[in-house]
């Protein structure tokens, strides 16, 4: 593995992890309101995917979208401020945890509804194709979203219109509390691509480098041939679904098993054993990630709340 890439993947994953741990902490203190969907354990899928994308590619994230947003390049400080509901937030405090966007880096917004991102991504890909741009659009989807009708519609549309769309499915095996085996007869999600005459690949979603390789390849195919591609990343959500999760639907042993497969831990071990990164280098990356997060939290806390007097400002565009 390339040293620079390894450092980037690790740094992104660490920022994501520390960001979410921080969100969880301030949530527990009552300093963040609303709800939040953490993706602890899924960072490799987000980092590997987003680092394989071009800055100008469009990326649509899910409600569990913090990591995708961070890895696509959303400013971490302003994202933290958004989650704190502050005026300096990347969406001025209008969106919150579930709705992070930063048009400047192609983060077209994380969506609170399961599935529509697949269709929206078709639209960005349609525009790029029309504009003669060599870009693609990526839609993150969970395994649960694969049972939404609109995802079927979007995959069919992308295929029949030859649109450069990457359907990036993070299969964390649960739709909230419901295991994939209860809601899908054939749990080989990639097999669905065949129905749309679409290429697909399944990859270990806890291996950041493997994800990067798979998505890079898929992106190359999508952009060069103008065609969609389905990438399925098998992973696991170590954190609960949201703040209401009592973990009644899974065993401690199961969670423990997946903690052993923590993507950050595996990545570090591999980088060390293969000599890609040294211990001091890893420590340095960790420190950088930590200070970025503490600066972000401080920025968020210090920022003012938005005023309701401006609330009509962004209902309509000029």
């Amino acid at each position: 593995m390339d040293k620079q890439l390894a450092a980037q993947l690790l740094e992104k994953m660490l920022i994501c992890r520390k960001f979410e741990e921080s969100v969880q902490y301030y949530f527990s203190l009552g300093m963040i309101h609303g709800t939040t969907h953490l993706g602890i354990g899924e960072e490799a899928s987000a980092a590997g995917s987003c680092l394989a994308l071009d800055r100008n590619d469009a990326m649509y994230a899910t409600h569990r979208g913090h990591s995708a947003a961070i890895c696509k390049g959303v400013d971490v400080k302003r994202m933290m401020a958004e989650i704190f509901g502050k005026a300096t937030g990347v969406c001025k405090g209008h969106g919150g945890s579930m709705h992070i966007a930063d048009a400047a880096c192609g983060a077209m917004g994380s969506n609170g509804i399961v599935g529509p991102s697949a269709a929206l991504a078709c639209g960005s890909a349609f525009a790029f194709k029309n504009q003669g741009k060599k870009n693609c659009a990526a839609a993150f989807l969970g395994d649960g979203a694969m049972n939404e009708g609109v995802v079927h519609e979007a995959m069919n549309l992308a295929s029949v219109w030859n649109l450069p769309v990457l359907f990036l499915c993070i299969n964390n095996q649960y739709g909230m509390s419901t295991h994939i085996s209860k809601v899908m007869k054939n749990t080989d999600i990639a097999a669905r691509a065949k129905a749309y005459d679409m290429k697909s690949v399944t990859v270990d979603g806890n291996d950041a480098y493997a994800v990067f390789e798979a998505v890079s390849g898929a992106r190359k195919t999508a952009v060069e041939n103008s065609e969609p591609f389905l990438v399925v990343m098998n992973s696991y959500r170590i954190s609960g679904h949201s703040k209401s999760d009592g973990n009644q639907y899974r065993t401690k042993e199961e969670i423990q098993h997946w903690k052993q497969l923590d993507p950050i831990r595996l990545f570090k071990e591999k980088a060390l054993s293969e000599g890609t990164l040294t211990s001091p280098e890893i420590l340095d990356i960790e420190k950088r990630a930590e200070s970025l997060i503490s600066e972000s939290v401080q920025f968020a806390i210090d920022s003012p709340f938005p005023g309701v007097e401006d609330i009509y400002e962004d209902v309509y565009s000029e």
Partner: peptide, 23 residues
């Protein structure tokens, strides 16, 4: 001409609009 996929093509139009088209 679109498939009979109203959510699909209306969603596609939204994404296209966000990326610079006027569908």
């Amino acid at each position: 001409d679109t498939p009979i996929s109203e959510a699909g093509f209306v969603g596609c139009a939204i994404g296209a609009a966000m990326s610079g088209m006027r569908p």
